[in-house]
């Protein structure tokens, strides 16, 4: 009979200890459980399109947009654009990636400085394009070097293996132009006050003018674009996540020649090292490969 009080006290002690242990463990696990149980906040992803467009730029944008599509918390995308364009093939890839994303969520673009040629191609599928008055957009065109003859010191399996006729090169560039101009008309035909032929002139326009002729939708900053994207996605409370622009490789000197933007490309980031393969470009400004000037008109 004497042991009963002692047994009861022991049971209470164990209970208290268990309670304390439960509290301690609970305090440790509660935040984890809370985070797991709490709904994920909606997000607007801001993705940079910056500098000369290369295959690496396209890789990064495709990856970022793929992540945006796969991440359920990302409800809208804003493209933060400051680029004169670049490789035609890379620009086309970026356009396609944006186009696919725009079919799943709102995409809005904000031009920070230049959104020309391949960069303009990239943001065509956007719900809205915001510019500042002094930003530059447009240059809907393609350029490429004229064909060069093969060398007599090599043996080729066909006459067009290392070169081609001027007609065929012109036809290739014209084909790319059809795709570019056609995409502009498809995406912005309702807004544009310009005809297809006028678009094909490949002019660039200031942001102020672009809002008048339909190349852009409105004057606005990056924040304006973010707000618009969130609105299009029906978001009231949201977070903004920013994707860092890809590191530039092998580029770039920017200078001014004869009043035109000049892009001097070093180490040929658009081409292939050691191989002088023909390149098709969607770029605004003067392009120079080493000592060879390919062209000096906007395109």
């Amino acid at each position: 009979m004497v042991s009963k009080p002692s047994s009861a006290a022991s049971a209470r002690t164990i209970s208290v200890l268990a309670l304390v242990a439960a509290v301690l463990v609970g305090a440790f696990l509660a935040p984890v459980v809370y985070d797991a149980a709490a709904p994920t906040p909606d997000r607007v992803a801001v993705i940079s399109v910056d500098g000369t467009i290369t295959s690496y730029t396209a890789d990064q944008l495709e990856e970022d947009l793929h992540e945006a599509r796969e991440n359920e918390s990302i409800k809208a995308v804003v493209l933060q654009v400051d680029s004169p364009g670049g490789s035609a093939a890379a620009s086309e890839r970026m356009y396609l990636a944006v186009n696919r994303t725009a079919q799943e969520m709102p995409v809005v673009s904000s031009v920070q400085g230049t959104g020309a040629s391949g960069a303009y191609y990239t943001m065509l599928p956007s719900e809205s394009i915001y510019v500042t008055p002094s930003s530059v957009i447009g240059s809907v065109g393609v350029r490429g070097s004229a064909p060069y003859g093969g060398t007599s010191s090599e043996i080729r399996t066909g006459p067009d293996k290392a070169s081609m006729t001027l007609d065929h090169r012109e036809a290739q560039i014209e084909t790319l132009k059809h795709a570019f101009v056609g995409s502009v008309m498809d995406h912005r035909g309702d807004e544009l006050s310009l005809s297809r032929e006028e678009v094909a002139y490949a002019k660039v326009y200031t942001g102020a003018r672009a809002t008048q002729n339909g190349y852009a939708d409105d004057i606005g900053t990056l924040q304006t674009a973010i707000d618009r994207a969130a609105s299009e996605a029906g978001l009231e409370n949201y977070e903004v996540v920013e994707k860092e622009p890809p590191t530039r490789s092998g580029i770039i000197l920017l200078s001014s020649q004869n009043g035109n933007s000049s892009v001097v490309i070093q180490e040929s980031p658009i081409g292939y090292d050691g191989v002088r393969a023909p390149q098709f470009l969607m770029v605004y400004g003067q392009v120079q490969y080493e000592d060879e000037v390919i062209g000096n008109v906007s395109a």
Binding site: Y95, N99, D167, E170, A171, Q172, A179
Partner: peptide, 12 residues
């Protein structure tokens, strides 16, 4: 996004 038949320019 593209219809190749409509894009291609062919030399005469």
């Amino acid at each position: 996004a593209f219809d190749a038949d409509e894009l291609v320019a062919t030399p005469g």
